[in-house]
Simulated scan of single mutants.
Amino acid sequence: MEPTTLRAVMAALRKPETGCPWDLKQDHQSLARYLREEAAEVLEALAALRPGDPATEAHLCEELGDLWLQVAFHAQLAADRGAWDIHDVERAIVQKLVRRHPHVFAEVDVEGADEVLTNWAAIKREEKGQAADHEPRLLDGIPASLSPMDEALEIGRRCAKVGFEWPDLEGVLDKVKEEVGELQAESDPVRVEEEFGDVLFSLMQWARKKGVDPDAALRRQMIRFKGRFASVEDDARAAGGWEQRDLDQMEEAWQAAKRKGKA
C-alpha cells in the first residue's frame, strides 16, 4: 500500500535497507542548499502570482509543497535519531502563536497592529528571561542568513519601534533624493560605493514605510523586463540578428512590448 501522507513518504524514503540511497545519505547540512533554493522559488512564485489565475495559483501551490518537503525532511532526520518529529514542530509553533496572541486566545485587549507588535516583543523577552534593562542592543541578533535587502528592512523596522523614524513618507523620499544627489556628485570609487549603499538603504526604508515588499517588487520588475526583452529579441531575430538592429530600433520594439503589456 502506497503512503498517503508526506510524513509516511519521508519515513519510507529514509528507511534503512529499503529506502532511497540519495535520501539516506543526506543530513541537515547537505539539505541546507535545497532549503534556500526552494524558499527562493516560493518567492518567485509569489512575485508571479495573479490571484484567481489557475496557472500561477497552481505554481505557487506546487512551490509551497516543495518547501514543505524540506521541513518534513529535516523533521524526519530528527525523528530518525529520536530527537523530535514533524508533530513536535507543529506543536511548538502552535504553542508559540497562542502564547504570543493573548488578544485572540486570552482576555487581552489591543488597539491596533502596533500594540500587537509591542505585546509580541514583550512576550518574546519574557520567554527568553530578559529583563527590560538587560536587553541586548536593538540591532543585535539579526540573523546572518538574511539577504542584505531583508536585513536593511529589519534594521529599519527595529529602529522605527523606538521612534527613530521619519515622521512621514515624504521625509523618506526627500532622503532618497538627497542620497541620489550625493551619489551623482561623487567620483572616487570608494565614496561612490558608499553613496550607492546609502541610496539603496534609503530606498529600502521608503518601501518599508510605504508598505511595498521590495523583494517582490524587484522580482516582478524582472519578470516584466524578461517578457519585454523577449519581444525585442524576437524582433531582432525576425530582422536577421542583433547586428541588424540599432539602439533606436530596439527601443522602439521595447516600447511596443511595453504598450502591449499595459493593454
Rank of each mutant, 00 (worst) to 15 (best):
L67V: 08
L67E: 05
W68P: 04
W68D: 02
L69G: 03
L69M: 06
L69W: 14
L69K: 10
Q70P: 00
F73W: 15
H74E: 14
H74Y: 01
H74M: 12
A75P: 13
A75D: 07
A75L: 00
Q76G: 03
Q76N: 13
Q76D: 14
A79V: 00
A79C: 02
A79R: 14
A79F: 04
D80Y: 04
D80K: 11
R81N: 08
R81L: 10
R81P: 00
G82P: 00
G82T: 11
G82I: 07
G82M: 14
A83Y: 06
A83K: 15
A83T: 07
D85N: 07
I86N: 07
H87T: 06
H87Q: 15
D88P: 00
D88R: 12
D88Y: 08
D88L: 09
V89C: 11
V89Q: 01
E90N: 09
R91I: 07
R91N: 03
R91F: 10
R91V: 12
A92K: 11
A92S: 09
A92Y: 10
A92V: 02
I93D: 15
I93K: 15
I93W: 12
I93P: 04
V94A: 11
V94S: 11
V94C: 12
V94R: 08
V94L: 13
Q95A: 08
Q95K: 14
Q95E: 03
Q95W: 11
K96R: 10
L97I: 02
V98C: 07
V98H: 07
V98A: 10
R99G: 13
R99E: 13
R100H: 11
R100N: 10
R100M: 09
H101I: 00
H101V: 00
P102M: 00
P102R: 00
H103W: 12
H103M: 09
H103Y: 10
A106G: 01
A106F: 12
A106T: 05
A106Q: 13
E107Y: 07
E107W: 10
V108M: 08
V108D: 02
V108S: 11
D109N: 08
V110C: 02
V110P: 00
V110R: 10
V110S: 12
G112S: 04
A113K: 15
E115C: 01
V116L: 06
V116S: 13
L117F: 05
L117I: 13
T118M: 03
T118Y: 03
N119W: 07
W120S: 10
W120E: 14
A121S: 14
A121Y: 00
A121R: 13
A121L: 15
A122P: 03
A122Y: 00
I123M: 14
